[in-house]
Design a protein around this nucleic acid. Sequence first.
RNA 1: GCGGGAGUAGAUCAAUUGGUUAGAUCAACAGAUUGUGAUUCUGUGGGUUGCGGGUUCGAGUCCCGUCUCCUGCCCCA
Length: 410
Amino acid sequence: MAEKISFEAPRGMRDFYPEDMVWRNKVFDAFRASGEAFGFMPYDACVVESYELLARKAGEEVGEQIYHFFDKSERHIALRAEMTPTLARMVAQRQKELRFPLKWTTIAQCFRYERMTKGRKREHYQWNLDIIGEDSVLAEAEVIGAAVDALKRMGLTSADFKVRVSSRKFLGELLAKSGIPAEKHAQVFLALDKRGKMPDSEIAAMLRDGGLGEADVAATFAIMDTKSYAGCAELEELFALAATAGFADCLQFDISVIRGLSYYTGIVFECFDTAGEFRAIFGGGRYDNLLTTIGGEPTSAVGLGFGDVVVTELLKSRLGESAASGKKGVSVGFMTDAERDAALRLATSLRSEGEQVDLALKPSKPKKFFSNADQRGSAKAVYIGPDDVSSGKARMKDMTTREEKELSLV
RNA sequence: GCGGGAGUAGAUCAAUUGGUUAGAUCAACAGAUUGUGAUUCUGUGGGUUGCGGGUUCGAGUCCCGUCUCCUGCCCCA
């Protein structure tokens, strides 16, 4: 007898039971529908990449968080933590033959070895939208618009979430205007990112540790209180485009949106639930160095990453745990083996008409059959006994109203 | 990486603070009930109390270790 091993999935890895799959499909369906509606071309790629590609792009301590291993030929292999390096590789490989701008989308399974918290596993699916090779702010507007569209398809409204937007370029100009030297900007970005998560006194201390004088610290705090994007042409244009497209009510200017120390260079954005209960729903921005980091030609791009975990938690919280499951399909059952073929013929006939049919696999008592049909969520049920076979008629019951409608057996 | 809480039946929880054979309610299964699912009644199965060690006459309960889950922080797809 084999030794019993744990039935649990490895830490941080996810199983999708049928009741989970209902939610995942709801979310993925919205991703795909919005991607198509906004004209993005689907693509896909290998889950495994060379460690070198991922580590180069990720930099810093993120390398520690990559699942990696050596294959049988000692190649250093890693599971992707995000899609961007892979996208960069694929675009660079065909950079000369592709016609820009590209609008590409994918739902990518990504892995990351780190401490688990609410809304964060070691494995997740991330919907990616990228527009590559386009400088127009309309690119940002389309990417954000598509993500907002997906949230609405899932059943949320602008009252449930807000997309906070800012611009790194704008922030950099404000800092420069205040006389803070460019080499200190990274420090300020870090501090700004902490606003609200940490007392101001500690943020001030962080800034001083970073080599800023008192005047610079004061100037930084003044900039943190910036409430208007007036004077930033690209943000003004983005808000105007959002108004034209009809989703301006979902946008908010927020100078503190930084997106960490990552590669963004222009407009950046993050979407949060209005109640502030969950982590960021999606985030992204413009990055000019997508291809140059791996040795390709300079190309500007706008990208968005939208994970499945947080939004699913949000949907369950706002719409209810059972919101994704609706009654559908027909259950067909039979009393004894003598009616089995009649049941199979009926199931076959219903299926050819496009019905989703769950045929009982063995005879069952009516009580049991209807109980099971109810449990699995069938909208209708037909139970066939000897009398039905001899009369050539059976009754299809609506599981909600309990009304019965006669139908003839074949 | 740092801190807090918790693990008892399929699920939610008890167990008089260390005392006899670990209980209840749902759920499941069978029957009352061989022709139609929400009621009722009867019965049945179900547990190495997360795992390992220790203290004790005796451990679900106390101690140590370990694993897992939840929850803050750090960080971030």
